[in-house]
Simulated assay, not measured.
Amino acid sequence: MKAVICKEFAPRAQLRIEEVPEPLVKPGQVVIRIEACGINFFDGLMVEGKYQTKPERPFTPGSEAAGTIIAVGDGVERLKVGARVLAFAGIGGYGEQVAVDAWKVFPIPAEMSFVEAAGFLITYATSHHALKDRAQIRPGETMLVLGAAGGVGLTAVELGKQMGARVIAAASSDEKLALCREYGADETINYSTEDLRQRLKELTDGQGVDVVYDPVGGNMTETAVRGLALFGRLLVIGFAAGDIPKIALNLLLLKQSALIGVFWGAYARSAPEKNAENIAELMDWFAKGKLRPHISAEYPLDRFAEALDVVMERTVKGKVVLVTGNSGHSKEGVPA
């Protein structure tokens, strides 16, 4: 089978597609014939050795995959051959097949396509866990989303509205903010042309926001902390800007606010039953038409480098998905 191979931690331009053996199913695992795989920012960090987890080399990047189960290992009862599923693979998604521990695999509703499924799990599960479990957001609270048109940011906008919050979306262009409004944003801030701190004051009558969803980091994080309301919470999702900010703790003391780390992958491993309940709730919302993943573009597997570049360069809105061609339905890098 074909798969993208990372032999050493190095610039992502050194990744290559190679012929590799098909995976063998082990006890507690399933093998999935991959139809589509989501591209994530941390995929690029991982192959360059800059991510918090460093797989043994060689490995195939790609943490979320969708497809059909073709083999079931001993001890697996919940999943059957032929089931349509999505998976939190960790690695292995940029290929034609992957073996995954069964607890990381979830059936998808009939209404969900493989492409939608491939762009669903990590972004929605991260935002759902962040808002529900970590921030414990309440109806009527005001939330600021930084990087709001990106993969996780847009799901935070959508889920924030689903959970009853007033959502302020902040992004770097008017085009991105128009998409955020389509997904439910009540107010928008273009931080390329507007002063983020001043606009937050204006939009909250000087009270600040209750929750900040921050997948960006960099110099905007401190501005967002200063924009928190009394007892506000800033969710640390990631550092797409490349810089990990240093925050003066007196800013938290004065407003009795909190910085809260969010690492959905670690949560899923430590609390698989609760995580499964959260995923089931998301699937129910999707089946009822309450969620609609935004897939910006689909690329065939042999154009993985181009797909990864647009994600790493932060030019994309929503999600980018690799399509293996197993179903013959790839769209060659055009908007989905």
Results as ranks from 00 to 15, higher is better:
A185R: 05
S192M: 13
H129L: 10
T155G: 01
A102G: 11
A156S: 11
L121A: 10
A135G: 05
W103N: 11
L179H: 04
D133T: 15
R199M: 01
G75V: 08
G164C: 08
E175F: 15
K132I: 15
A99D: 03
R166M: 12
G95T: 06
A170D: 03
R197A: 15
K176L: 01
Q136V: 02
L131K: 06
A165F: 06
V85M: 05
E111W: 12
A110Q: 14
V157D: 02
A149D: 09
E202Y: 00
I91C: 06
V105M: 03
T126Q: 11
A165K: 00
K104G: 09
V100T: 01
L200C: 04
L154R: 04
A149E: 00
C180M: 03
R134G: 07
C180T: 06
L177S: 07
D195Q: 06
C180F: 06
V115W: 00
F88M: 12
A89H: 10
Y191K: 10
R197D: 11
D205K: 12
S172H: 03
D205T: 00
P109S: 10
K161M: 03
Q198R: 03
T142E: 11
E194N: 09
G140D: 07
H128N: 11
T193D: 02
F106M: 05
A135C: 08
T204H: 08
L86F: 14
E182H: 12
V105D: 06
T123L: 04
T123F: 14
N190Y: 01
E182Q: 15
V152K: 05
V145F: 05
R84W: 10
G164T: 04
P139M: 00
Q162M: 13
R78G: 11
V100Y: 09
E77S: 13
F106H: 14
L131V: 03
A118E: 11
Q198H: 01
D174Q: 15
T142P: 09
E175W: 10
I168P: 10
G119D: 11
V81M: 10
T126V: 10
E77C: 03
L203D: 07
K80N: 15
E182T: 12
K176D: 01
S127T: 13
Q136W: 01
S113A: 13
G206N: 12
K132C: 10
M143F: 01
Y191I: 02
P107N: 14
V167I: 14
A148K: 04
A83K: 06
L177G: 12
A99M: 07
F88K: 02
A102L: 03
H129R: 07
M112Y: 09
V85F: 11
G75M: 04
R78V: 12
A156K: 00
G90F: 09
G151K: 02
V209M: 12
V100Q: 11
S113C: 13
T188K: 04
E175M: 10
P107M: 07
I137S: 15
E111C: 15
G92L: 04
A87V: 10
E96A: 05
E202D: 15
K104W: 13
K176W: 04
L159N: 08
A102M: 01
S173F: 02
L177M: 07
S127N: 14
G90V: 02
Y191S: 01
E175Y: 09
G82S: 11
G160F: 00
